[in-house]
Design a protein around this nucleic acid. Structure first.
Length: 288
DNA sequence: GCCCAGGTGAAGC
DNA sequence: GCTTCACATGGG
């Protein structure tokens, strides 16, 4: 199908990795179903991912010898069993594990993750994907891809976006999120916020640094802390998780956001963020 | 037309 | 303090 040099492929044995659930669970927004696998971009690499009986298979556009960036992104070294057994043994949580076993958390680039979630406010996942795709096509560096594949671009750098006008960004259909993305790009490219050092702080301090950015509140900050920095107890509470907690743990009662927060931080244990992703995915697919 | 979407921040009780 | 509302845009 696609002509490939010998070392642009790699395979790795791994159990309990549900690629589809992982790539479509609203943590990353650039993966496209293509044939039997998934096409996307990790940093400056075009990548095609596929799961087989052997494990995970990856193909890149250019031959590589060092694949550490790939396994880091996929968190391939994580022992999922240990995470799943750390979840509370209550019925809703176990039902979610039963339904989604193999769902994983990725480890994404902080800037791409931050920018993407700034764009996520009151948008459906499909629409976030569309906005991100347009943004990348307009302002991302073109990437080398194998012959016959569609064109792909890197995620735009903060420097590139900081040089845009609000009107430029509005053309990517992001609406009222345009000034927020622009402000974040300027804060990062000017060094006013240093994304590289955020992960060194305790969770609360790291959150506070992120929420200084306009358009970044607790929910988006927790997403970035979970999906990019890997804080295991970061716990984004969006409309789906609110619904999940109310229905599954509070028998549908109205519960204040603060009470939900307190419950979330006390109930789900050392891998609460992972538990959150299982509940999120479970809720979104349970009726379909 | 109306309502909602992996929210946030400002304004009103 | 907590609740309500505007903010662009697209889809059901």
């Amino acid at each position: 199908m696609i002509p490939t040099p010998p070392n642009s492929h790699i395979t790795r044995t791994i159990s309990d990795y549900d690629l589809e659930a992982t790539l479509t669970s609203g943590q990353a927004f650039r993966w496209m179903k293509s044939g039997a696998g998934w096409e996307g971009v990790i940093g400056s690499h075009w990548v095609y991912l596929q799961s087989s009986h052997q494990g995970l298979q990856a193909q890149t556009a250019q031959p590589a010898t060092d694949w550490s960036w790939l396994w880091h992104y996929l968190q391939a070294d994580l022992e999922l069993d240990k995470v799943l057994t750390s979840f509370p043994p209550d019925p809703p949580m176990q039902a979610a594990v039963q339904a989604c076993r193999g769902l994983r958390l990725l480890r994404q680039d902080p800037w791409e993750c931050l920018a993407s979630f700034i764009l996520s406010a009151t948008k459906q996942i499909v629409q976030i994907e569309q906005i991100v795709a347009t943004l990348c096509a307009c302002y991302g560096r073109p990437l080398k891809t194998p012959p016959g594949t569609r064109s792909w671009h890197a995620f735009p750098t903060p420097e590139r976006l900081a040089g845009c006008s609000e009107t430029d960004l509005l053309a990517c259909k992001m609406g009222f999120r345009a000034p927020r993305l622009l402000a974040a790009a300027q804060a990062v490219s000017s060094g006013r916020i240093n994304l590289a050092e955020i992960g060194h702080y305790p969770l609360a301090e790291a959150e506070s640094r992120l929420t200084h950015l306009p358009g970044v509140g607790p929910k988006i900050a927790q997403c970035v802390l979970l999906f990019a920095y890997g804080y295991p107890t970061a716990f984004p509470i969006d409309v789906w998780i609110q619904r999940a907690l109310r229905e599954l743990y509070f028998s549908g009662r109205k519960v204040s956001p603060i009470s939900l927060r307190e419950f979330a931080s006390s109930h789900f244990g050392p891998n609460a963020g992972y538990a959150q992703q299982y509940l999120f995915h479970y809720m979104r697919h349970r009726s379909t």
